[in-house]
Amino acid sequence: MKNKRPFSKDILIIEDIGAECERIVTGIRENVLHRLHRIGGVIGISGGIDSSVSMALAAKALGTENLLGIMLPEQDSSGDSARFAQKLADKFGVKAITENITGALKGFGCYIRRDEAVKKVLPEYDPDHYKMKIGISNSGLYTNLPPLFSLTIVDSKSNQQSKRLPPNELRQIEAASNFKQRCRMSMLYYHAERLHYAVIGTPNKHEIEQGFFVKNGDGGSDIMPIAHLYKTQVYQLAHYLGIPNEIIERTPTSDTYSAEQTQEEFFFQLPFQQMDLLWYAFKNGYDPQEVGIVMDRTADEIEKVFGGFERKIKTTEYLRMPPLSF
């Protein structure tokens, strides 16, 4: 690659953050108004860093009076999510409403279908007395074997039990849980259509490229203003835009299962700072030897990580595909 900068831990820092911010703001405005022909935007806000930065950018682009923030909690959501989301909306002067989707999810049988699969693996599970989550083994990143999912249940005394998830139960738990993101998408479109607004999606670069989203769920929107940014860069923008510190300092979670779970243990296997650098190195064709020196890993380990990335791209391609026609 021509003029490729030496690989370093600072390689992702955006040098002119103000200019990047302005470029995104202009992009939102131009695309919403002149390509999508909508007069404003709706955005799901969770109190997480991605939706917070996306909301702040959209507010600058469209004006606070043309933006609606929607909190979409359900019975498993953390109370912190609503509190932080409201704080964010208040700070930026954006109107925020709450749409609790628990009733819709019960209608779909989301919880019953999920719990049925959980009980098949750990029969003592009772949703009234246990919390649950699924996660992956973090031994998977430096080997050629993909990680396996396990189920964890936690009782009221914080005693945990975990078991490897067989394929049928894993698929049922994931499929049932995905009702959550798809319900949220439906509700966002209800308000968008009612107001003649566009739905502003909030995934970042990793989530899209590694397939950490639900097809036609949080992957369903009209415009994705931070889809080109690494998480490190999203944080850089957060500081620049004045996102509240509690949100910036919060550990990214999936907020999908009743037991607490970080995005790292559910999907990424590494803290985002390391994942960002490795992903950048992989996407930009850096030599594993050079990357290994910076990341304090062997070239062989880095090659295995890159192999895992290739596998992830290949196996999640289906999520990024538009409906096929022929």
Binding site: I136, G140, N144, L145, P146, P147, L148, F149, R164, L165, P166, P167, L170, R171, G307, E310, R311, K312, K314, T315
Partner: peptide
């Protein structure tokens, strides 16, 4: 190594 299996394929 050739990437024929993802997590679901492995399990």
């Amino acid at each position: 190594k050739e990437g024929y299996f993802d997590s679901m394929g492995f399990i």
